[in-house]
Simulated scan of single mutants.
Amino acid sequence: MATKIKLMRLGKMRAPYYRIVVADSRTKREGRVIETIGKYHPKEDPSFIEVDSDRAQYWLGVGAQPTEPVAAIFRVTGDWQKFKGEAAPPPMKVAAPKPDRKALYEEAVRGNGEEPAAGATTPKKKAAPKADADTADSSAADTVAEAAGAGGEGPAAGATSTPAE
């Protein structure tokens, strides 16, 4: 059986990432694989490349043929030079480690803990003057309704009357 070391595409549109896999040469790109030997994330800066060097050397030694993109990855990681017996390439660029969130939080707390807070960061909202006018109108309407209900002689609240001539 002829084996190839190739890339299996995963991810979304415009956000691909790949697994470096060993598979039968007749299988599809995302078809059945024999073994996964690495990862490749081209969209990160710098690109993330992780290869299990021992397994890559084994498969190259038993005759598995890498595709051109995989051969380029092996040249970057130094696995191809190790297989051919050549000098190792310069080391790869590695992304800077991300800062620890807990350490950043503790530093911010220490920085703000020394200064007393002067007050609220946003001013308190003032009551709208319209709300005062609405409450005055409703209390006046209540007084009129009570007077109409208590007298019993006048017209019903809300009804209009015209003087008789």
Rank of each mutant, 00 (worst) to 15 (best):
A128C: 14
T122S: 12
K124M: 08
R110Y: 03
D134F: 08
T135M: 14
N112K: 04
S139K: 11
Y105E: 01
P129F: 10
R110K: 07
K102S: 01
A140R: 13
E107F: 01
L104F: 02
P116A: 09
G119F: 07
G111H: 04
A120S: 09
D132E: 15
P129D: 06
K130D: 11
A103Y: 00
K130R: 11
A140T: 13
A108K: 08
D100C: 01
L104N: 01
N112G: 05
T121Y: 08
A131L: 10
D100V: 00
A128P: 14
D134H: 11
K124E: 13
L104V: 02
A117R: 08
K126G: 06
K124D: 10
P116K: 05
A108W: 14
T135F: 07
A118H: 06
A118V: 09
A131P: 06
L104T: 00
G111E: 08
T135L: 10
K126P: 11
S139H: 15
R110D: 05
A127W: 04
L104K: 03
G111D: 07
A120W: 08
D132Q: 11
G111Q: 09
V109E: 06
K102D: 01
K130P: 06
P123R: 14
T121R: 09
S138I: 15
G119Y: 05
T121C: 05
P129K: 12
N112Q: 07
K124I: 10
A128H: 14
K125S: 09
K126H: 13
T121V: 08
G119Q: 03
S138D: 14
K130M: 12
G111V: 03
V109F: 05
S138R: 15
D100E: 02
D100A: 01
K98V: 04
N112H: 03
D137R: 15
A117Q: 07
T135D: 15
K130L: 11
D137C: 14
G113A: 14
P129S: 06
E106S: 00
Y105T: 00
K98L: 03
P129V: 10
P116E: 07
A108D: 04
K130T: 10
N112Y: 02
A120G: 12
E115M: 03
S139G: 08
E114T: 12
P116W: 07
G119A: 03
R110S: 09
P99Q: 01
A133K: 15
A118F: 10
T121S: 12
P123H: 11
A131T: 14
T122I: 12
S139C: 09
A108Q: 05
D132F: 15
T135P: 09
K126I: 08
K98M: 02
A103M: 00
A103V: 02
R101F: 01
A133H: 07
A131I: 12
E115T: 05
K126M: 13
K130Y: 12
K124H: 10
E107C: 00
P123F: 08
Y105S: 01
R101K: 04
P99E: 03
K98P: 00
D137L: 13
G119R: 07
A131R: 13
S139N: 13
G113S: 09
T122V: 14
P116V: 04
A108L: 05
P123L: 13
A140V: 13
T121D: 13
A131Y: 11
K102L: 02
A136M: 12
T122M: 11
G111C: 04
K125V: 04
P116M: 06
K125F: 02
E106D: 02
A118I: 06
A103N: 00
N112W: 03
S139W: 13
T121K: 09
K124C: 05
T122E: 11
